[in-house]
Design a protein around this nucleic acid. Structure first.
Lengths: 237, 237
DNA sequence: TTATTGTTGACAATAAAATAACAGGCGTGC
DNA sequence: GCACGCCTGTTATTTTATTGTCAACAATAA
């Protein structure tokens, strides 16, 4: 029964990028492309492209390459983008609001149906047509409406409990912006977006290149105020 | 001269997570921890923790483990978090504004000094004390003020040119939220946050688990409207 | 003191991922 | 419609990452 081999996470994480490049090619009215050409555009090896795609089937043809429209559509299906997804946002703060306002999601079929928050000032408001409800109403909503993905943009102290509840109530996926590792049953899927972590890795690289001991660029050091900071309470996200 | 061995990207990407866990331990007044204990909390192997940390030096002690405060501070230094960073936001839309409003950045020493946008309705406004300037003033600003990181939250059509300009004017790092691959000189460091890509990988996993051919959970299929979507113009971010 | 336990840091073994190599099918041009 | 060369799908190789093991040494207990 379980005859399809497991696809590695590294491959999956590259699929959206392929999808994006193929969409660009499509807009440029390019009908076919070889792995070699694509590898130059994407700055990866042709070998990797062929091997990645072959995890899902033989989409190309010897002597021809890949048909852009066909391949684009196949990846769309692989990623599951040929369906609608119902989402809710939990936490109506800055990032939550920004995501509701991000109109491209809707165009792609990611539909945010409701926002839940604890803040009385937000409850009852409408963000781009999406209503903000009291978080107390969330259980009722989730149990009576299909929710594929919950977008978590709340303080980490609350995120763990909310994720646990949502999992219990049947939400399949969590897109987690809270700065904490969620503990959910293994049939619930979590994708983390740790913005601060991402920024920190950038800062590491900047320091490594410009300010490290053995960097040949430490002459550029002047611009930096080296005032030490004291650690402070990390209260949200 | 180049005697320090290169640290692998996989290790670097884990450092912020160590830093977070150590911060949590510190708040819980835990003074020492062994790699074994930490491995249980973090759900990784003790071996990996020890090897990761040993890339940067021997921070632990046999028979004792690691001193939490000391290790936390060492990782802080490794990541370069013991300094202030001057940042600008380019693109004052939803995500740009959300980042400016995110007060935790400032607490950590990531200071957003200015926002630049092309939209006359935004120019002159102030977001949490940070002024929004006309993007025409950006060259002047960047050349006369230290800018460590530019946060790019603008439509992809503009992002490539802006990144190129900023690099030319001396910005060292780009934190890129635009849905495009930037082309910058190799001495400029780019960290991408492709939110849509992240969401897509989550959707892939949801589909794989709940809706794939050979999933034993496809009985749960009812909730999903399988209305096909037509591709639409992808205009921002 | 001396024995015992705990735990690191170093290194070896294994696993995963990326790259390279290549056999053979398929357009393309003549 | 035939031969040549392009380009895939697949297997092999190399590189990178993770995990397992153990000697050395500190902490603790006897």
């Amino acid at each position: 029964m379980d005859n399809e081999k497991k696809i590695s996470p590294a491959v999956i994480s590259r699929l959206p990028r392929y999808y994006r490049y193929l969409g660009d090619l499509l807009e440029s009215d390019i009908t076919r492309i070889s792995s070699k050409e694509l590898s130059v555009k994407m700055n990866i090896t042709a070998s990797q492209i062929r091997q990645d795609l072959n995890n899902f089937g033989g989409f190309g043809q010897q002597g021809y390459g890949y048909n852009v429209e066909y391949l684009h559509n196949e990846i769309k299906k692989i990623l599951g983008l040929d369906r609608l997804y119902n989402m809710i946002v939990v936490g109506g703060g800055n990032i939550g609001q920004a995501l509701v306002n991000y109109t491209n999601f809707e165009k792609r079929g990611f539909v945010i149906k409701a926002v839940f928050d604890i803040n009385p000032r937000l409850i009852g408001m409408t963000i781009r047509g999406v209503e903000v409800y009291d978080i107390d109403q969330m259980e009722d909503y989730v149990k009576n409406n299909p929710v594929d993905v919950a977008i978590l943009t709340l303080p980490r102290t609350q995120a763990v409990k909310v994720a646990h509840d949502l999992a219990k109530w049947g939400v399949k996926g969590m897109w987690n912006f809270s700065h904490v590792d969620l503990q959910v049953p293994e049939d619930v899927l979590v994708e983390n977006v740790h913005l601060t972590d991402s920024l920190m890795t950038l800062l590491y690289k900047i320091n490594e290149m410009y300010y490290s001991e053995d960097s040949d660029m430490h002459l550029l050091k002047e611009g930096l105020p080296v005032k030490p900071l004291q650690e402070m309470e990390d209260e949200t996200e």
